[in-house]
């Protein structure tokens, strides 16, 4: 067994808790982990693989949530096509963002994506109030209605989410080792050289940003259906901040890292918020310490420890 497989095993255990301990109370938590993981996996394609720090992913996430809610509740669409539309709209918005934001790089890219997403947030709260319900949001977002299964039962919904999670993970894994993923890593490593050997850098960046937007849109739609509600908070920049924390905590640029980050983030949210109302500040401290002390996150730490404990079995 190498370190990567060990990480995969940890992830597998976390997401199969409802199977290992049926009837437990953790099902809601695992469902949330699955959904945020889809978001984080997609975010890491941009952040960890292509090396672009976006502070605007809340926009795609929130817009996906609104898309699914409005299409199912106002337009009478079925759940699955509406979920697909959430992905498409999330991706389309990301594509629009990328046309503006990719012209600048580094810190400016982070600021520009932040500004663009706050613009969407303000619009949803004011100009589009008729559509979005303003600060009240929209309650009563449905879940899928398939094969006569009652997905309003969290235990059943778990399987639906698990299927999508596995699909998202597979696609992301494939992208990473595909020529596309390699090209993106090349851009992150040395943009000048990547462009000089003939990569269309901007187009590749736009592509991955769009793919990541699709992930965000789908996961946003799923979260709305999980909690039966969508509100402007999902569009707020702190949601972008959350996904950045998750990915950095777990380990940017690795396939399983972001999932570990999501799990820890969600478990902390669950447990700490029961112990203290100040869990977000503690999270901030943990985040600062991790940023300084382990830039490759928990996944990086585990791989390092594994290689030390198991000499010879290099991963």
């Amino acid at each position: 067994m190498n370190a990567q497989r060990f990480l995969a095993l940890i992830v597998a255990i976390i997401i199969s808790v409802p199977l290992l301990f049926p009837g437990g109370h953790n099902i809601g938590l695992v469902n949330a982990i699955l959904i945020w993981s889809i978001f984080a996996i997609g975010f890491d394609l941009v952040f960890g693989i292509a090396g672009m720090l976006s502070f605007g992913h809340a926009a795609f996430f929130g817009v996906g949530a609104y898309t699914l809610s409005l299409l199912t509740m106002r337009m009478g669409w079925d759940f699955l096509p509406a979920l697909g539309a959430a992905g498409v709209i999330g991706g389309a918005l990301a594509l629009v963002f990328s046309y503006f934001a990719i012209r600048v790089s580094g810190l400016f890219f982070a600021l520009l994506t932040l500004a663009l997403s706050q613009l969407i947030y303000i619009m949803a709260g004011t100009k589009l109030r008729m559509l979005t319900g303003g600060v009240d949001g929209i309650a009563g977002v449905p879940r899928p209605d398939l094969f006569g299964i009652d997905f309003y039962d969290d235990g059943n919904y778990y399987f639906f989410l698990l299927a999508l999670f596995v699909l998202a993970l597979l696609i992301s894994g494939l992208i990473r080792i595909s020529p596309l993923g390699q090209a993106l890593k090349a851009i992150k490593s040395n943009e000048v050289r990547a462009e000089q050997i003939g990569f269309n850098v901007q187009r590749l960046q736009r592509s991955v940003f769009t793919i990541s937007g699709i992930y965000a849109g789908v996961s946003g739609g799923l979260l709305a259906s999980l909690i039966f509600y969508v509100g402007p908070q999902m569009l707020h920049w702190s949601t972008s901040g959350d996904v950045v924390i998750m990915v950095l905590l777990g380990g940017m640029g690795s396939l399983f890292g972001p999932i570990l980050g999501v799990a820890i983030f969600e478990i902390m949210r669950e447990w700490l918020s029961m112990q203290t109302s100040h869990w977000y500040g503690i999270l901030g401290l943990v985040f600062i310490i991790c940023t300084i002390g382990m830039p490759k996150g928990i996944a990086g730490l585990i791989i390092q420890l594994w290689d030390r404990i198991m000499p010879g079995g290099k991963s």
Partner: peptide, 8 residues
């Protein structure tokens, strides 16, 4: 850049 097959 293809994304459906591993680069190898």
């Amino acid at each position: 850049q293809p994304f459906w097959r591993p680069v190898g």
